[in-house]
């Protein structure tokens, strides 16, 4: 049997970190209440990002999920 050429999540256009976080999120989602709410709160985060060019700050974009990070 030959090894797989690439991973299925890469084919879906995910990065490794997106995949890892998605897996963690799914795992947390499988918990029962009240542990679920507590665990789900752990993955929430928020920050604003902006790209700079030539010493000038670009527009701020709020980031709240892995999918939106690094855009």
């Amino acid at each position: 049997m030959s090894p797989p050429v690439t991973t299925y999540w890469r084919l879906a256009g995910m990065s490794y970190l997106q995949y890892v976080n998605k897996a963690a999120s799914t795992m947390r989602g499988a918990l029962k209440e009240p542990a679920k709410t507590k665990a789900m709160a752990q993955e929430a985060f928020q920050y604003n990002t902006s790209v700079w060019s030539g010493g000038v700050q670009g527009a701020k974009t709020p980031v709240t999920s892995m999918g939106a990070a690094g855009k």
């Binding site: 970190l17 902006s50 700079w52 980031v63 990070a69």
Partner: peptide
């Protein structure tokens, strides 16, 4: 400066660290 991330909410989690790594 090529990029900045502000209003980063503490306490940090691994999800946050992953997002910053993606940045």
């Amino acid at each position: 400066i090529v990029r900045s991330a502000t209003e980063v909410v503490a306490p940090g989690t691994f999800s946050l660290a992953s997002a910053l790594a993606a940045e």
